[in-house]
Design a protein around this nucleic acid. Structure first.
Lengths: 103, 103
DNA sequence: CAGTATCCAAAGGGATACTG
DNA sequence: CAGTATCCCTTTGGATACTG
């Protein structure tokens, strides 16, 4: 019961899954790349969400010594285990949409 | 991608899963019962969340001709398919907690 | 580039009281 | 009992500007 809420807390909000999907799809991704991938998100929100994902050890943040500096985000091994969850939720979402449309 | 968000929208918020779990556990459940089961929820919130779940065809609302009237909530067949999702999320939540605690 | 800081409007949601 | 209505504080998050 608590555990479900833990999961939901981690994935909660409007952007988390889109961000994870972006990083996941490209393997590694920079801040401004994700900002472009996730349509509608502001830099403030992206910054906040990335921090939360990092605290939850789903992603790793690495500062690269470029000029100007760039930052690379990757999924951790633990973060990658979310793939299954996301697939489950995707399948259920598709079924759900059918049920709603069929009224 | 959209489908994941559909699922998340349906399960989103602080209370949905707790409410579903309450109804699921008892099979059928009245408004005031759920109000007691879900610690901390207000009647306003419960009312709102139940409406959303009903619109999404996860639960069925039935008014009983008692005096005073009571209302029974049950999971639809479609609502019951959430069990798998919830179990997945639970398992992942447990694993996740381990990862966080181990730091 | 990768953020942080500030301002501010809108939404969320608790507490309480009320209704059929 | 099963909600609705109202008040009102808190949180959210967009827009914009700024910094190392």
């Amino acid at each position: 019961m608590l555990a479900v809420q833990d999961s939901m807390d981690v994935l909660n909000g409007k952007w988390k899954i889109a961000i994870i999907s972006s990083i996941c799809y490209y393997n590694k991704r920079r801040f401004s790349d994700i900002l472009n991938d996730v349509v509608g998100i502001s830099n403030k929100m992206l910054s906040k969400e990335l921090k939360e994902l990092e605290v939850n050890k789903l992603i790793i943040r690495t500062v690269l010594a470029t000029q100007p500096i760039t930052v690379k985000y990757e999924l951790t091994e633990h973060g990658k285990t979310l793939k299954t969850i996301i697939n489950n939720l995707t399948e259920w979402g598709i079924e759900h949409r059918k049920h709603i449309i069929e009224q």
